[in-house]
Nucleic acid binder design. Structure first.
Lengths: 127, 127
DNA sequence: ATAGTGTATATACTCGATATACACATTATA
DNA sequence: TATAATGTGTATATCGAGTATATACACTAT
């Protein structure tokens, strides 16, 4: 499982883990029943504390994405992929709202936003 | 000067003050030489500590938007409005990048993004 | 037994927000 | 004109929430 931690983003480490696991579930890289790396193994490879990986896994478990068993490990639960997609859609809408607020205040027009959207959407690194 | 504090946003109070003052400079509500409310007056009207308003004013002063004089007050400095607009443009682009990342992961298409942008841009409260 | 899992407790550090006391400028008024 | 009173910005020490941690504990499989 590939997880990349950025120290400069300001986003908590455990949240970065959570969102990247969700993204991999969304993309199908992680499917139902798949074993996640053990908390210790992940902590070691990211050079962080076990407690931080545990916190990430706890949040994923609380939200119904994975299940953990003492002595055995952590595993991906059966997913309602459509539910996840809706979550992403909500988050996307929230971000677009921020974009519009910022743009209006700064005198950026709707047309400019559409242009920027095309440019940025197509210029980003693909998987 | 109208400043509105939201406790639910998660954004620090002093940052909310900073961004709203910048927005008012951008819109022309605050012009060169205008006096800002005193740190105490603003603190009292927002029911927050003087130290928090001071912190906001410090950041505005550090970034060259206002000037403070002990015993006299705080005043709007001469502005390069074009510089401010560019700052907003940069922030807008950064937000759009986040939008595209989130959208891609969630399987939201570019066409859907354009539609959402039109809807949200036009549905937001106008000044 | 041993080595692999997840779990729980107590601790340190950062950052937003604060109360309180201090220093300077203007204004009222004696 | 002198000076007390009020209004301005400033500085120090402290609290609380949230992130990340070291260490020790409990369970499972081999």
């Amino acid at each position: 499982m590939d997880i990349i931690i950025s120290n400069s983003s300001g986003e908590p480490i455990y949240e970065q883990i959570v969102s990247q696991v969700k993204a991999q579930i969304m993309s199908g890289e992680l499917a139902e029943g798949d074993a996640l790396p053990s908390m210790r193994a992940l902590a070691q490879s990211l050079r962080i504390s076990v407690i931080t990986t545990k916190r990430a896994y706890e949040e994923l478990e609380r939200d119904g994405f994975i299940e953990s068993f003492t002595g055995k490990g952590s595993f991906v639960k059966r997913q309602n992929r459509e539910l996840l997609r809706e979550e992403y859609l909500r988050q996307t809408e929230a971000l677009i709202t921020q974009v519009c607020d910022k743009a209006r205040t700064g005198g950026v027009t709707l047309e400019e936003l559409h242009e920027l959207l095309d440019i940025i959407y197509n210029s980003e690194a693909q998987d």
